[in-house]
């Protein structure tokens, strides 16, 4: 594997300021995710898993260390450029889905394309195609409230992939789902990783799930321990 990394963190730290006191959430983490990787992030609560995901996805900037997304050092990017980079190269999936409530499945999926400047007709076509791929071709007009939890998370996965990103970051995507539905969603992520080669990083507490990933990133107290 000598391909350029999708994202690369070198000795990255992230501190939060709490009432004038610096609280370290990450204390020097180095992680490289290559195209096609399927990595699981494990660790106890508060160990910095979400913080790492936000950094890898360019939602946040490190306090120190070097972070390169799609080969670009985030230090050298403006907020606008970083937004564009997120739009094109990163897909996020959240524990609580984060779908727009009054918006149909197809329009939820098409949302990133709005900010990519894609025309309405093309947006719709690509959103429908993605919904079809996650098995929701028959639920295009449904709103989040009219969908089951598993269906909602599949809409969110379709949204994460609609711009054709190279990296999909899923922070406890099954946390709000029962185990059977959760297994389905994870199966879908694996399948997408296999078929389209998108790199997947998934935060999970489930050891079986982690075992199925090609790599495990174990965290403790803001450090990668294995």
């Amino acid at each position: 594997m000598s391909q350029a990394p999708a994202v690369e963190a070198v000795d990255v730290t992230r501190e939060y300021q709490l009432g004038g006191v610096a609280v370290p959430a990450l204390r020097g983490v180095s992680v490289t995710i290559r195209p096609g990787d399927y990595a699981a992030v494990l660790g106890p609560s508060g160990s910095g898993k979400s913080t790492l995901m936000h950094l890898l996805g360019g939602l946040d900037r490190p306090t120190s260390g070097t972070l390169r997304i799609a080969g670009r050092d985030v230090r050298e990017l403006s907020a606008t450029e970083l937004a564009g980079l997120r739009n094109r190269t990163i897909g996020f999936v959240f524990q609580s889905f984060h779908l727009l409530a009054r918006t149909s499945a197809v329009d939820n999926v098409a949302l990133p394309l709005v900010y990519a400047g894609v025309r309405a007709g093309e947006r719709r076509r690509r959103a429908e195609e993605l919904l079809d791929r996650v098995g929701l071709g028959h639920r295009l007009r449904h709103r989040p409230g009219q969908l089951s939890g598993g269906e909602q998370q599949r809409v969110a996965i379709a949204r994460a992939l609609v711009t054709g990103p190279s990296l999909l970051l899923a922070d406890e995507p099954t946390g709000n789902l029962d185990s059977a539905t959760g297994a389905e969603v994870l199966g879908l992520l694996e399948q997408l990783n296999r078929e389209s080669g998108v790199a997947v990083v998934v935060v999970t507490h489930d050891r079986d799930v982690a075992a199925r990933a090609s790599r495990q990133i174990r965290m403790r107290d803001g450090l990668v321990v294995a």
Partner: peptide, 16 residues
């Protein structure tokens, strides 16, 4: 607020 966070996560700029 959550909607704004989501929009930013999928690529909305400050200006958008």
């Amino acid at each position: 607020t959550r909607e704004i966070g989501l929009r930013k996560a999928v690529g909305a700029r400050t200006r958008d």
